[in-house]
Design a protein around this nucleic acid. Structure first.
Lengths: 347, 347
DNA sequence: GCAAACTACGTTAGCGCTAACGTTTTGACT
DNA sequence: AGTCAAAACGTTAGCGCTAACGTAGTTTGC
């Protein structure tokens, strides 16, 4: 790789200082909005900097400041609006505070999260954002040791690395399951990705399972397919359940709304009447839901809010606030047309 | 904002050098894989660096190297798998070459692209990736002037800033329109976002329009809604067309497959038979298509391939290759169940 | 009217790293 | 053993910027 190329000499602070006939320190102060410069000079310097198209070298600045204004963010995937929305929630807050985000996806692979940490830390980021609470022990140790402000998003933790903003997924599973039990459903199934990928979904499944077991009802059957394409996983999940010799479940919980939508399509193909033959339950309440012929029964998760709260917390922490900045948020059950409804014709 | 905090003294190259009893230059050479170090010493230094958990400060490295190993990427949105896939196509190539990506979204707003350029350039990125070919004139000028390797992705340009990898969208529109004309369709409509947002879609519309006009057929009606939520835009588009006094179009071209899917749902609600009453044409060939009861007629775009080719080109350019590295790729028409098919019962 | 307390600058030093060049050691060949 | 070149290492200088401190000028207070 070629180094020290790019001959078109970039303007540096010295050029501005020379043109303005002041020291470079005065320019530095003026442009950063630091006090110690008369407003007249500051205005002049701004004009000259603009004229010369001066842009500070952030690598140099990060070097002196010991830390950069980069914030590393790790999501499992971007093929899911859930994460794009959390990003959307964080970005305005972070950017207006002068931070730039570096986003990576781990494809639900914990080893890739470790790799990523090793990639971003050399940039000396001001903060890091991880998804969920399950991380390699080395990650926890390293981040705690050097006190990097860290946000664990999407899943709330009682023992966070630093800041945790999210919901409790097993509770969410339990709550939606209890709601379905109250509607008379008794033969549950769960459709999601292959085991070991979406750990939050697994926790929701645990919650669902415990709710049904607590009522003395049967276990939750599972149908798992793939690791990325939620549409296929939802569709194949229903087809798999239908192909098994066991009687069809009367309610199916899907990993997310887009799985549920695909499952709904599979039910249509199989001639299953929703919600009479089978109940369909999504998760997240995604925008696709608003155009479906039958609105999904689902659980609305406050993704943008998580992003905003998390970003604010991070900035506070970066600025030295030591308080507990974690937030546990609550999801909301949305009754749609793909299950029975409370107060409706139960049983 | 606090500066020079983070007391937990980070290990620097000097610490490794001291422990290994060599000069810091030898450590630098050893760890970077540069020649001039005996293999015995190199191995020792690697061990020590690992033991000390040394991680080079990339801000310092970027400062000496005049440019960083960051690559800035600008997409209109991430709420669209098309861009997530292009990113997926680029990332492995870029990362294995040692680059880190900074991704931003512009929400289809050209002014935000300019802002973004001004945000990333201070990092002295090794390269930039923009979406499409329509940029603020200042952007073109600046990037050409300081010779930043630049990739314009998704839409092919005959006069690129530097490298262009993509398809010709107006040709794509013309081709799919000609294919539909050949199937006997004559009253076209287009459903998409509000004007001025997705410029590639507008070019496809121009292509569609010119194809129909060339055959002496009527103009293409348009129904535009929103700027982000493609599902709503697709759904509302059909509802709007149906509500107008004019006769219903016999074929509707959608901005993308997820629009088309939502439009299909709207048609079902309206009792319109697809494809007999109305033909539905998507774009991009997204994964949602594989689970729909009726597979969409659509145009398959090689997103991952664009990403890979573009990334390779960028790396070549960064390494000093001066050739023309642009690629014009071709989309492929996919005949589904939402229109008549060639060789089928035309007319 | 003069010291104390600002304000508005400039000077010095150093952040962690690497290109370029200088010096020593090794080995190959007479 | 002696010559010379290549390999292996060290030294110097500087990338662009900012914290900390130093130094003039200006105001304030009594």
């Amino acid at each position: 790789m070629k180094k020290r190329q790019r001959t078109g000499k970039t303007v540096k602070i010295e050029d501005v200082a020379h043109e303005a006939e002041v020291s470079i320190m005065t320019v530095s102060r003026a442009l950063r909005g630091v006090e110690g410069v008369s407003e007249i000079k500051r205005a002049q310097i701004f004009d000259i900097a603009e004229k010369l198209r001066y842009q500070p070298n952030l690598n140099a600045r990060s070097l002196v400041n010991v830390q950069s204004s980069l914030i590393g963010i790790s999501f499992p995937t971007l093929f899911n609006d859930v994460f794009a929305e959390m990003l959307d929630g964080m970005r305005p807050t972070l950017e207006s505070a002068g931070f730039t985000t570096i986003v990576t996806t781990t494809e639900y692979d914990r080893a890739r999260e470790v790799d990523w940490i090793n990639t971003v830390r050399p940039w000396r980021p001001a903060a890091l954002v991880l998804t969920g609470t399950d991380h390699d022990e080395r990650v926890r140790r390293v981040l705690r040791r050097d006190q990097t402000p860290t946000l664990e998003l999407w899943e709330h933790s009682d023992d966070p690395i630093d800041i945790s903003v999210g919901i409790n997924h097993s509770d969410a599973g339990r709550e939606i399951a209890d709601a379905m039990i109250a509607l008379g459903y008794m033969r549950p199934a769960f459709v999601g990705f292959d085991l070991g990928h979406d750990l939050r979904a697994e926790k929701r499944l645990l919650g669902i399972r415990s709710a049904f077991l607590a009522q003395g009802l049967g276990d939750v059957r599972t149908a798992r397919h793939g690791t990325i394409d939620g549409y296929r996983a939802g569709y194949d999940g229903i087809k798999t359940l239908a192909a098994e010799k066991a009687p069809m479940p009367d309610v199916v919980f899907f990993l997310s709304d887009h799985f549920a939508f695909a499952g709904l399509m599979a039910c249509m193909e199989l001639g299953l009447n929703v919600p009479n033959d089978i109940g369909i339950v999504g998760f997240n309440s995604l925008s696709v839901n608003s155009v479906l012929p039958q609105r999904l029964t689902t659980v609305k998760t406050p993704r943008r809010e998580m992003g905003t709260l998390g970003a604010r917390g991070l900035i506070a922490r970066i600025n030295g606030v030591q308080n507990d900045l974690s937030h546990r948020l609550s999801p909301e059950i949305i009754y749609g047309d793909t299950t029975r409804k409370p107060g409706g014709n139960d049983i």
